[in-house]
C-alpha cells in the first residue's frame, strides 16, 4: 500500500489532464452560453468558430516561425493569439452583418437562427478546410514540459512521475485570466452590464437607451475571443484538426447545458464536470488501485469503466442525469 504514489499517479493521469481539458471546455462553453443568453440560440457553428480562430493563430504562428520570432520556452502561438482573435472577430462580425443581422430585424424566432447557424457552420467548415486542409497540424513549440516525469522522479525519489506539460500550465493560467477578465467585464463595466440587461429583457433594455446592435457586436467579439483562446489551447494541448473541433460541439454543448444555459458560472462548472467525468470513467484505474490495495490484492483487469471511445457517451449520460434532477442545470440557467 502506497498512498503517495497512488496519488501521484492519479494526479498525473486524471487530475491534471482533466483540469486542462475542463478549462478548454469551459472556455468553449462560455462562448456558447453567451450566444444563448444574448442572441438567444445555440450556435452550431461554435466548434467551427473555434477552428477558424485557431487556424488564423496557426497561420500567424507559422509566419512568425518563418521570421524567426519566438517566445523562447513558451509556444509562439501565444504571440500569434491576439492576431487569431482579431481575425476570428473580423470573420464573425462579417457573418453577423451578412447573415444574422437580417434575422434580428425580422424578429426571427430563435429556432430559425439555429438553422441559420447550421448554414454558417457548413460555410466555416468549408472555409477552414479550404485554407488549411482537413489534416492534423501540430503547432506547439518551445519547451515541452514544465516538469517532466523523469525530473519529478529524480527530485522526489518517488517511483511514479508527475509530468506537467507547458501546454497544460498555459491552458490553466490563460483560462483563469480570461475568465476573470470576462466576469469583471460582465459584472463591473457599463457595457458588460448592458449586455446582461439585454439578455434579461430586450424591450426594457431598448427603453433604457441600450443600443442592441452594439450589444450584439460586443458579444460576437467576446465570443470570437473565447473561441479562439479555447481552440488554440486545445490545439496546443492536443493538435489541430478541423473535424475534431467540429466534434467538440457535443461536449461543449453538454457543458453549457449541465451548468445551466445562459449562466457563465454554470458554463465553467459544467466544463469541469464533463471533463472530470470523461477522464475518470475512461481511465484504466489498475495502477492506482494496485498502489492503494495491500500487496498482491491488485485487480487483474485494467479496471477501466468504459473504453475511451465512449467519452461522448459519458458527457451525454452526465447531461441526462443532471437534466432529470435539475432541469435548469447546476447553476440555474434559463430553464432547459
Amino acid at each position: 500500500m502506497d498512498l503517495l504514489n497512488a496519488f501521484i499517479t492519479l494526479a498525473n493521469f486524471v487530475i491534471i489532464p482533466a483540469i486542462a481539458y475542463g478549462s478548454q471546455l469551459a472556455l468553449g462553453a462560455l462562448g456558447v452560453t453567451l450566444i444563448y443568453g444574448i442572441l438567444r440560440f445555440s450556435n452550431f457553428a461554435h466548434g467551427d468558430t473555434m477552428a477558424f480562430g485557431t487556424m488564423v493563430t496557426i497561420l500567424i504562428t507559422w509566419l512568425f516561425q518563418a521570421w524567426g520570432i519566438s517566445l523562447g520556452v513558451l509556444p509562439t502561438a501565444l504571440l500569434a493569439l491576439p492576431f487569431g482573435i482579431a481575425g476570428c472577430a473580423a470573420f464573425v462580425l462579417l457573418t453577423d452583418r451578412a447573415v444574422y443581422r437580417f434575422y434580428r430585424t425580422q424578429k426571427a424566432k430563435p429556432v430559425i437562427l439555429v438553422i441559420v447557424s447550421m448554414g454558417v457552420m457548413f460555410i466555416m467548415n468549408g472555409v477552414v478546410r479550404f485554407i488549411i486542409g482537413p489534416d492534423d497540424h501540430n503547432f506547439s513549440d518551445g519547451e515541452r514540459f514544465i516538469i517532466s516525469a523523469r525530473t519529478f522522479r529524480e527530485l522526489t525519489g518517488l517511483q511514479e512521475g508527475l509530468a506537467i506539460r507547458t501546454s497544460t500550465g498555459i491552458t490553466v493560467i490563460t483560462a483563469v485570466v480570461v475568465v476573470a477578465l470576462l466576469f469583471w467585464f460582465l459584472n463591473k463595466t457599463r457595457t458588460g452590464k448592458s449586455m446582461r440587461a439585454y439578455s434579461d429583457n430586450e424591450d426594457l433594455a431598448l427603453l433604457s437607451g441600450i443600443n442592441p446592435e452594439r450589444v450584439v457586436l460586443v458579444t460576437w467579439v467576446i465570443v470570437a475571443a473565447l473561441a479562439t483562446v479555447a481552440g488554440t489551447l486545445y490545439g496546443l494541448d492536443k493538435s489541430f484538426k478541423a473535424f475534431t473541433y467540429f466534434q467538440l460541439l457535443l461536449p461543449i454543448f453538454a457543458s453549457a447545458i449541465v451548468g445551466g444555459l445562459g449562466s457563465p458560472v454554470g458554463a465553467i462548472a459544467g466544463g469541469f464536470v464533463i471533463a472530470f467525468s470523461e477522464v475518470t470513467i475512461t481511465y484504466a484505474w489498475k495502477k492506482v488501485i494496485v498502489y492503494v490495495l495491500p500487496d498482491g490484492m491488485g485487480p487483474d483487469g485494467l479496471v477501466q469503466l468504459l473504453s475511451t471511445d465512449y467519452k461522448f457517451a459519458v458527457s451525454f449520460i452526465i447531461l441526462l442525469v443532471v437534466l432529470l434532477f435539475r432541469p435548469t442545470g447546476l447553476f440555474k440557467g434559463k430553464s432547459v
Partner: peptide, 21 residues
C-alpha cells in the same frame, strides 16, 4: 486545386443560407 474538394461544404452552407434568406 487540392482544396477545391472542400468547396462542397461551403456551397451547401451558402445554398442553405440563400434559401433561408
Amino acid at each position: 486545386m487540392d482544396s477545391a474538394a472542400h468547396m462542397r461544404l461551403f456551397t451547401m452552407g451558402l445554398i442553405l443560407l440563400l434559401v433561408l434568406r
